[in-house]
Design a protein around this nucleic acid. Structure first.
Length: 581
RNA sequence: GCACCCAUAGCUCAGCUGGAUAGAGUGUCGCCCUCCGAAGGCGAAGGUCGUAGGUUCGAAUCCUACUGGGUGCGCCA
């Protein structure tokens, strides 16, 4: 139940009525007519800009339209008052019963209250994490993992058919480096002394991989040349690394639907096929790129390469798909990978990258635009850096000093729920400060705690009500007489609840899951405010021990808050706290 | 040199794809806890929304040019 779309529909039908009465021209575009919560609650429950938007095309004064519209809206029993204000806003106040309906709907629909059909079942592919399979995930990957996962859940909530996907970069030189590093650990497992030179991964996490390799193949690769073992060890090692990464993700509660291997694109004709698709559109040519201005590489020399005419699709320069020696650049398999996604029938693609990949946005969008003839939109969300703090001091990471912070370190220290929530309390394109001490703090300053505490408080009321012999199951509460919920602080909570379906759609439309986190904070804030007023005004307490019927109506409101908090936290991948301790 | 991201209260940040007097937390200041739901509550002060133009009924939001910070820029994926 979305109260805003309901009233929006009402406004549109009354505007049509004005047309029928000859008070508005027959041909008018209502697309920009919006019904929104007013900035200041004192103005009313909802506001519409209809009069201002239509004034010019209709050739009428905004206030005149607003007054005609107000008169019609007032005839509807859902509308209590309609006042023209400011430059032509129409402020609406809804009948109290509307808010009671919201509470009832939340109790009846549960988690589905707020679900939407906005996505219309369109297929969306969300690609995220996609870290190189050369080691455990570090804290930098955590944000992208949480963001992508929450975004996927959000899109599912608003009616898309979502695939969560991980692109395994197992085709490049970095997995050869991994293989050589594992081989050194393998030799070590056979008792040899080895040296990790530059260009190898010295991390301890490869020790057990070397031992596992020994257990599998015995001494078969000892003192053998690279061409004997490289391919086998590479495959063995990347499999192990992906197992590791899968476990890392699991510790965060992230589960992918698809793991797509870059390697599977090589030697199978799939890159060639994608490039052919571009070639057929006349977008592939042999040419020489200009050197970057102002910062020419030392070893610059003009070279002829195979180029993709990405400038036809909004890029700044054309991009090479082949190196001068004829081998593929990394961009070529990326093109083939996105081509594969397009041919799998997705209506929309989303890539979640780290901020350091900002340079690839235009070329990827150009490629997808070209390959799909601009039919499939690609949205690329860049997640900015996470800065770690401990005791208020910046916490520097260094592989060499051994202060390398892994995803697992973070989750083990602060927990999955806190990690996820905190990572989502900032929009993706803003840097994030992550203070190990602050995020664990149990106080109002900490939004995670604040939201969880609201949920726990309501659960505590429910427990006490049951102890007092009052029925508080959702069905009973939904059937309770809610007409007594008339206090301003109570209606404020109900109003906030009514915004949830709208907020979910908004966040889903913009691919911005952080809006859910901020909304939940606001909702919790309204609940806490009501609770605190109960300190001074006993009549506002949820539990009225001597009056079961009144208790049920008030508890219905409180309970519906937890319904929405659970739904919202569910999208963020956070478990609602039953109680605080 | 070019591209992308960012700039909002002392600090950390929201701000609804252009709406009304720009919000929250924190910090500061004032008041409140003998009892009842204080891991707190109520209130106040605090802003040229980086700068300068433009678009229009209306701009923190869109456009242009600057300033400052971050990221990236052909054989690394």
């Amino acid at each position: 139940m979305n109260l805003f779309t309901e009233i929006h529909g009402l406004v549109l039908s009354e505007l049509a009525g004005l047309q029928a009465d000859g008070k508005l021209p027959e041909t008018l575009d209502f697309a920009n007519v919006a019904v929104e919560p007013p900035r200041d609650a004192a103005h009313g429950d909802m506001a519409t800009n209809a009069a201002m938007v239509l004034a010019k095309p209709a050739g009428l004064q905004p206030r005149a339209i607003a007054e005609d519209l107000a008169a019609r809206l007032l005839a509807d029993d859902r509308i209590e008052s309609a006042d023209v204000a400011g430059p032509g806003f129409l402020n609406l106040r809804l009948a109290p019963a509307m808010w009671h309906d919201v509470v009832r709907a939340a109790l009846q629909d549960g988690e589905a209250f707020g679900r939407s059909t906005m996505g219309a079942g369109q297929k969306v592919n969300v690609e995220y994490v996609s870290a190189n399979p050369t080691g455990p995930l570090h804290v930098g990957h955590t944000r992208g993992a949480v963001f992508g996962d929450a975004l996927a859940s959000l899109l599912d909530y608003v009616g898309y058919e979502v695939t969560r996907e991980y692109y395994i970069n197992d085709g490049g030189a970095q997995v050869d480096v991994l293989a050589r590093s594992v081989y050194l650990r393998y030799l070590e497992a056979h008792g040899q002394a080895v040296a990790f030179e530059d260009g190898t991964y010295p991390g301890d996490y490869l020790i057990e991989v070397g031992e596992a390799l020994k257990a599998e193949v015995g001494a078969a690769y000892v003192d053998q040349p690279e061409d004997v073992w490289l391919a086998e060890v590479r495959s063995f090692a990347t499999d192990r690394m992906m197992d590791l990464i899968r476990e890392d993700l699991k510790s965060l509660g992230v589960e992918m639907d698809v793991f797509f291997s870059e390697k599977s694109l090589y030697g199978t004709g799939r890159i060639e096929e994608a490039l052919k698709s571009l070639q057929d559109r006349g977008l592939i040519y042999e040419g020489v790129l200009e050197p970057p201005k102002g910062k020419t590489p030392e070893d610059w020399e003009p070279r002829e390469q195979t180029l993709f005419r990405s400038t036809d699709y909004g890029d700044d320069v054309d991009r090479p798909v082949k190196k001068s020696d004829g081998s593929w650049t990394y961009f070529a398999p990326d093109i083939a990978y996105h081509y594969d996604k397009i041919t799998r029938g997705y209506d929309m693609l989303i890539d979640v990258f780290g901020a350091d990949h900002g340079g690839y946005v235009k070329r990827m969008k150009a490629a997808v635009g070209a390959l799909s003839d601009n039919r499939v939109p690609l949205d690329i969300k860049l997640c900015q850096l996470v800065k770690l703090y401990k005791n208020g001091e910046p916490f520097k990471m260094s592989k060499r000093a051994g202060t390398f912070v892994t995803l697992r370190d973070v989750v083990e220290q602060v927990g999955q729920d806190v990690t996820r929530f905190v990572m989502l309390t900032r929009k993706n394109d803003a840097p994030l400060d992550f203070d190990f001490d602050k995020v664990m703090e149990q106080s109002k300053d900490n939004p995670v705690f604040y939201v969880q505490y609201a949920n726990a408080r309501v659960n505590s009321v429910l427990r006490k009500a049951r102890e007092a012999g009052i029925a508080v199951d959702d069905a009973t509460l939904a059937g309770a007489d809610l007409s007594g919920l008339t206090h301003e602080a109570e209606l404020a909570v109900a109003r906030k609840l009514a915004e949830w379906p709208r907020m979910a759609e908004l966040a889903g439309r913009l691919n911005e899951p952080h809006r859910v986190a901020f909304y939940l904070y606001d909702l919790a804030s309204d609940l806490h405010a009501l609770w605190n007023r109960g300190n001074d005004e006993p009549a506002l307490r949820f539990l009225q021990e001597d009056n079961p019927a009144t208790s049920q109506s008030k508890i219905a409101l409180a309970r519906s808050v937890t319904v929405v908090i659970s739904a919202g936290l569910g999208i963020l991948g956070v478990t609602p706290a039953e109680e605080m301790r």
